[in-house]
Amino acid sequence: MPSSTTPTARRQRLGAELRKLRERAGITATEAARLLGGNQARISNIEAGRYGVSAERVRTLSCHYDCSDAELINALAGMTGERKRGWWEEYREVLSTSLLDLAELEHHGTALRTSHTAGLPGLLQTTDHAREVFRQVVPTLPPPEVEHRLSFRIKRQHVIFRENPAPYRAIIHEAALCMRFGGPAVTKGQLTHLLTMSEREHITIRVIPFKAGGYPGSGQPIYYVRGPVPQLDTVQLDQAHGIVFLDSEAQLHKYRQILDRLETLALDVPESRDLIHTIAQSL
């Protein structure tokens, strides 16, 4: 398989999972290369995501690594061989690689779960609201950059409008509903949009009210993307310095617990809709 100067997050994740299997088996990269009839550099490049790998080779490596988890092996094999460029590739020269990786992650996710305290989930934002959010970025973005990010965000939203979309669960704090990006008119339009989206069968929106008190997670946005098997789940966090992806077993367990805890604090769906409606009517 050819090398890639810009390995995607999906290819890097596949390589990382193959490395985990190898290390658990107590096999060195040199030994793995010998089993495949290649050299150590090739194994290193595969594990770093610089080289692609075929489904057949994934199955061969899994066999050498004594992996008996058929579901995991099939999921890893399913991550190989994609030739078609995703829509996000058209933004490769204008947006950060991490944003492209996020779109790719969403595209392949089997379920999406998120929580927000001071802002609203990107997949649920209106065009007017999103534009105002990007205008608040520090340092200030030039107008063309704002429009690039805006069009990218709107295209990301196709993942919840496509045929057979993945289930999407959002927990939003009441504070986020009261933030007036763009003023009352834009905010009211955004809240109305949330109500409309909440009527879709695959979308669940629940609100944590102020009266719920304290909550875990330090108020940071959390985005949990479920993979085809639990080992391939991913957590995405927004940090001041950019996007962070987490996928270790301990990290996945931690953020599942946080999201579970937040759901115990949230209003049920009808109550959440009533609160969103009340806030919208007050504008």
Rank of each mutant, 00 (worst) to 15 (best):
I205M: 06
K254E: 15
R92N: 12
Y65C: 03
L191W: 01
T192I: 05
K254R: 15
F134T: 02
I276T: 07
V146M: 05
T80D: 01
V244P: 03
L35K: 11
A25Q: 03
T126M: 03
F152S: 01
I160H: 14
Y51H: 12
G219K: 12
F245P: 05
E71M: 11
R19F: 02
V53Q: 00
A266K: 10
P230E: 08
S62Y: 00
D260E: 14
L100K: 07
S62P: 04
A33W: 01
I243S: 09
A41M: 13
G15N: 04
G219N: 05
R19H: 11
A29H: 04
L262S: 07
E82P: 02
A185G: 06
R42K: 12
C63Y: 14
N74V: 10
L237D: 02
K188V: 15
E163A: 06
I171K: 03
R24A: 09
C67I: 06
H108L: 09
R24K: 12
A111G: 04
Y51K: 10
G182M: 13
G183Q: 12
Y215D: 05
Y51D: 03
R85Y: 06
R156T: 02
V53K: 00
R11T: 03
H64I: 00
D260R: 15
T114E: 11
V186T: 14
V225A: 02
A280F: 08
N45D: 14
M197L: 15
L150I: 06
R50F: 04
G189S: 10
T60Q: 10
Q12Y: 01
R22H: 08
N74D: 15
L36F: 08
V53T: 04
H148A: 11
V235C: 06
F210S: 07
L259W: 08
E199G: 13
G189L: 02
D101M: 04
R11K: 08
R162F: 07
A176S: 13
E56G: 12
G15H: 00
V207Q: 01
I208K: 03
I258W: 00
V186R: 13
R156H: 04
L61E: 02
A250K: 15
D238E: 14
N164S: 12
G78D: 05
G86F: 03
R113I: 05
L237T: 00
F245S: 09
D101V: 07
L177G: 00
P121K: 08
S68F: 15
E93W: 11
D274P: 04
R226A: 12
S62L: 08
C178Y: 02
E201Q: 10
G52Y: 02
Q40N: 11
P142K: 11
R85I: 12
L99A: 09
V229R: 05
R113E: 13
Y223L: 13
F181V: 08
Q231D: 10
V159Y: 04
H64P: 01
R19M: 05
V186P: 08
V244Q: 12
I43R: 00
G119V: 14
L150F: 10
R83D: 02
V244H: 10
G38P: 01
G189T: 08
I243R: 08
P228M: 09
G214Y: 12
A240Q: 14
W87A: 03
R13N: 07
F152H: 06
E23F: 12
G119Y: 09
K84A: 10
G26W: 12
R135E: 13
F134M: 14
Y215Q: 04
L252I: 14
F210C: 04
D66G: 13
S218R: 13
T117S: 14
E82F: 09
